[in-house]
Design a protein around this nucleic acid. Structure first.
Length: 199
DNA sequence: GACAAGATCCCCT
DNA sequence: GGGGATCTTGTCA
């Protein structure tokens, strides 16, 4: 069952990031179905979060998509190398986002290996925000894409994760955010080896 | 127009 | 475990 746009329009981005653990992310790019189970996310809030690109209402060429109603993709390039995939949440003008950081491969594994240049299946396939975008074929051309469409979408397959199996911890790589770097807004599926390697 | 830094990953030691 | 790759973006002049 595909997650509807209303799923992403809720006002609490932290709850949405938590609820996305155990859901499934798919792409159908270049005519190939690839995807996996979401095992790691991070929440970024428009208000009171120095780590968020839309912090202090920053509205630029890069962040403008964040101000759309929830349910669109925010894809950007980091370190000149890796595309990172976020889902915009909340209503229009409230620029919250959830970063997808780790996937457990499910569908189209051979194609994902090809895109990643790997001859074997290992956590190098999709365990990391810059890796899973490569595996799924997501790049900056998908900026602003509808995540309830036929190219990129998420599904609930009925296998919900019990709350006690979701671990919260501080977010990764945002030391510049001062006190907000300590917020426990990173969520992981306990015991999954497909979460990103950092701390 | 110039410059510093980044929500990362890979390879080498 | 540590450093370099690599280029877009935001900020300031």
């Amino acid at each position: 069952m595909k997650l509807p746009a209303t799923f992403y329009r809720g006002s609490d981005v932290v709850s949405i990031a938590r609820e996305l653990i155990g859901k499934y992310l798919f792409t159908n790019i270049d005519g190939v179905l690839t995807g996996g189970r979401v095992v790691e996310t991070e929440a970024y809030a428009h208000i009171n979060d120095q780590a968020c690109h839309s912090h202090l209402g920053r509205f630029t060429k890069r962040t403008r998509i964040m101000y759309e109603p929830g349910g669109v993709a925010y894809v950007y390039l980091i370190y000149g190398r890796y595309a990172l995939f976020n889902i915009i949440t909340n209503e229009a003008g409230k620029a919250d986002a959830v970063l997808i950081r780790g996937l457990e491969p499910v569908e189209g594994i051979a194609e994902m290996q090809l895109r990643r240049g790997l001859s074997t299946v290992s956590t190098k396939l999709t365990a990391g925000p810059g890796l899973l975008t490569q595996a799924l074929g997501i790049n900056t051309s998908h900026y602003g894409n509808d995540v309830t469409g036929n190219l990129i979408w998420l599904e609930d397959r009925g296998d919900a994760v019990p709350p006690e199996q979701i671990r919260a911890s501080p977010r990764v790589g945002i030391d510049y955010a001062g006190a907000d770097a300590a917020l426990p807004w990173r969520f992981r599926l306990e015991g999954s080896k497909w979460t990103s390697p950092a701390k």
